[in-house]
């Protein structure tokens, strides 16, 4: 019991919360960026623009099929080669955004495709342009259908930020490792705290997702 009290002292818990703040910061920025980028890429891929859609599609497939850990390494060690020296946190954000955008792009593409069957022609026959039909008819429906999948992807993103510990990003997982690295007796309390903190955030988001889904479907 005393171990638990010591392990989760204000000092240590505060340090964990500092890590949590970084985790949330990385997650939030990556979520916003990858939502925008993923949507754009997904729409480009759906639109069948000559060469561009195929090229974008291929790059998306490459990234989607690689482990996130590899993308993190490539980003962190690759950036200086093109003349940019990112901090570990920036690297993590870039890596998460690249990876999640490609996952989202695929979700968006198949989401649009499943709605657009028939609807696109219908909208076009009323005299709408492709872009108008997409913007006013297809996308609103598609996104409504995709909410649970997209939220699920965001939950994955938050969990995946823990992998950034491999390039020593000072996020939640890394800070817990620092604490139990300095006192191995604290390992069990640290894992309990980690599990609880990640669970609370991810579970809340999951719940919000299913609430939103029910709400918008009715």
């Amino acid at each position: 019991m005393q171990t638990w009290i010591d392990a989760l002292s204000w000092l240590n818990f505060g340090f964990l919360l500092k890590g949590l703040a970084v985790t949330l910061y990385i997650s939030l920025v990556s979520i916003v960026l990858s939502f925008i980028l993923g949507s754009v890429l997904g729409i480009i891929r759906y639109s069948k623009i000559k060469f561009i859609s195929a090229a974008v599609g291929f790059v998306i497939d490459l990234v989607r099929n690689l482990p996130l850990l590899l993308i993190i390494f490539f980003t962190y060690f690759g950036m200086p080669k093109i003349g940019y020296r990112p901090s570990a946190i920036t690297s993590a954000i870039i890596a998460m955004t690249i990876f999640e955008s490609s996952m989202l792009a695929e979700i968006v593409r198949s989401g649009i495709q499943s709605v657009s069957e028939g609807q696109m022609e219908g909208a076009r026959s009323t005299g709408m342009s492709f872009v108008q039909a997409l913007w006013y008819i297809i996308l609103p429906q598609a996104y409504r259908h995709m909410i649970p999948t997209i939220i699920g992807q965001f939950v994955s993103l938050i969990k995946d930020t823990s992998l950034a510990t491999i390039i020593v990003v000072p996020e939640l997982m890394q800070h817990a490792q620092v604490i139990y690295g300095q006192n191995a007796n604290y390992i069990v309390p640290m894992f309990a705290a980690l599990t609880l903190l990640y669970f609370i955030i991810c579970f809340t988001l999951s719940m919000a997702g299913s609430y939103l889904h029910k709400h918008m479907a009715s």
Binding site: F51, A54, A55, F58, L62, K81, I82, G83
Partner: peptide, 23 residues
């Protein structure tokens, strides 16, 4: 066309990792 694109992309990726003018 389907074959050329991937190859071109792979090469450009290689260039980026291999021979960029680095810091």
């Amino acid at each position: 066309k389907k074959i050329i694109w991937p190859i071109a992309l792979l090469f450009s990726a290689l260039m980026l990792t291999g021979c960029g003018k680095s810091v």
